[in-house]
């Protein structure tokens, strides 16, 4: 039976975050093997794919939307993905990434790239994608179907969500698996 079922196309994306959520995903350990018998990882930092593919079933998006590039990618993810999951607190709430929101962007870039030794900032050289005035959680940019909080989300939580989705069940996490932080 299992053979005839089409494998789920799973993607992961790393926006403005520390990659800790991806580390936690790897901490699924042997459960990963189980998962990958049911799903193909088609895009993300863990696989070698240059372009976000079309027709993705599930996408775990780590990190907040911090710059124009993130925003563009988020739009692209939305058009090509059935279930978009805010993966971890930065995607869900902005979290640590959004702590820069209290500082005006110009001051921020000044402090990072100008007040130290480098004379010309990458922003001026158009190396860095333009920063948004405020870091926003993913759902304020695109519609998000599921929220998987935690900093990082515990592997248990990730497993519970992915298992349910792969089985085609509703995701219903207990309260203690829904906490931020």
């Amino acid at each position: 039976m299992a053979e005839t079922v089409k494998k789920i196309r799973l993607a992961t994306v790393w926006l403005g975050g520390c990659s800790g959520c991806h580390m936690s995903l790897l901490d699924l350990d042997e459960a990963l093997i189980d998962l990958l018998t049911r799903a193909d990882l088609v895009y993300g930092p863990l696989v070698d794919a240059k372009k976000y593919p079309e027709d993705v079933d599930i996408c775990l998006v780590e990190g907040a939307v911090t710059n124009v590039e993130n925003l563009e990618l988020a739009r692209h993810i939305r058009t090509n993905t059935r279930t978009v999951i805010s993966f971890g607190d930065c995607a869900v709430t902005g979290n640590v990434t959004s702590m820069r929101n209290r500082i005006p962007v110009s001051d921020l870039l000044n402090a990072v790239y100008h007040e130290v030794s480098a004379p010309i900032g990458p922003e001026a050289l158009k190396v860095l994608p333009a920063l948004l005035k405020k870091v926003i959680p993913l759902h304020q940019a695109i519609k998000v179907d599921l929220f998987l909080p935690g900093c990082p989300p515990h592997p248990e939580r990730i497993a519970a969500v992915l298992q349910a989705l792969v089985n085609g069940d509703d995701v219903d996490l207990p309260a203690d698996m829904r906490t931020f932080g």
Binding site: L71, L109, A124, A130
Partner: peptide, 18 residues
């Protein structure tokens, strides 16, 4: 917000002034 990628100039802070 969603149209910002097409209007990135609204966000660019440091112009090439030198």
């Amino acid at each position: 917000l969603l149209k910002l990628p097409e209007h990135a100039e609204q966000l660019t802070i440091f112009k090439e002034e030198h």
